[in-house]
């Protein structure tokens, strides 16, 4: 049986992890490779690296990092942040990334999804969608959720699927950072309305929130950052709890 995936997300700036990492037992908590290795050995099903650098050298720094991560870990990983062309994707995949995630560039140029899917296959193209519920309507936002658009979340998600995305990473801006749980209603609508996997993101605070994302939200995978980075929840405890709740997960022995 296919299991539900638990995905820690690492924010990367200039080749280093940023935003609240509290791993006292790591030699260097800022080293993404070391952190990736820790998670891969402790039951993470996948990892996402989100590059938030804004420097000229970002492409090269990210490509180097991907190579080091691929050399070290034995689970799949996705790379996102600032990817806007077939060439960008080619470099990252050739360096060992399993999937790439595109966001703003897909909204600005939807044809990019078709181009990437036909060139590299749908299986490695994740489209990330940040959306916020305003007056009952879910609107897609860009630039890390800062810039609103007129796009409706569900219409955009449908279009993304039709253009060949293999997976959608949905972040609810209303829930992100609140630790009050995932946006389960919207998740469920996405998951039942589309035929590609949906990754839930934004709002994880407790183990129950993950259960809810899978049961109520019908998500295929759940992504979180701070609850893992600050060891508020360990992946092994989480998976044991999910299994107790009857949710299929990969338990490593």
């Amino acid at each position: 049986m296919l299991t539900k995936r638990i995905i820690p997300c690492l924010d990367i700036k200039n080749g280093r992890t940023v935003k609240g990492i509290n791993f006292l037992d790591l030699r260097d908590a800022g080293d993404p490779v070391e952190l990736a290795k820790f998670y891969s050995e402790n039951g993470a099903d996948e990892l996402v690296f989100l590059d938030i650098s804004a420097t000229e050298e970002r492409r090269k720094t990210l490509a180097d990092l991907v190579l080091k991560v691929a050399e070290t870990i034995n689970i799949p990983f996705t790379v996102g942040g600032g990817i806007s062309s077939v060439e960008d994707v080619e470099i990252l995949l050739n360096n060992g990334a399993d999937k790439v995630s595109i966001n703003s560039s897909a909204v600005k140029n939807p044809q990019l999804i078709n181009d990437l899917a036909s060139r590299f296959g749908s299986q490695c193209i994740v489209v990330a969608i940040d959306a916020k519920q305003i007056d009952g309507n879910w609107k897609v936002h860009l630039v890390g959720g800062k810039v609103p658009t007129e796009l409706d979340l569900f219409e955009w998600a449908k279009e993304v699927e039709q253009r060949g995305a293999g997976e959608i990473l949905f972040t609810s801006m209303n829930n992100d950072g609140t630790k009050n749980g995932f946006a389960n209603e919207a998740l469920s609508k996405l998951s039942t309305g589309l035929n590609i996997p949906i990754i839930a993101s934004g709002g994880a605070g407790t183990m129950q929130h993950f259960t809810d994302a899978f049961v109520e939200g019908k998500a295929d995978a759940a992504l979180a950052a701070s609850v893992f980075h600050f060891k508020e929840i360990t992946i092994s405890d989480l998976k044991n709890e999910l299994q107790t709740q009857g949710i299929p997960v990969r338990i490593i022995t």
């Binding site: 299991t3 997976e167 035929n195 996997p197």
Partner: peptide, 12 residues
């Protein structure tokens, strides 16, 4: 299409 396609993840 009775299942999500592609199948992505860990199966037994």
């Amino acid at each position: 299409n009775e299942v999500k396609v592609p199948q992505i993840g860990w199966n037994q």
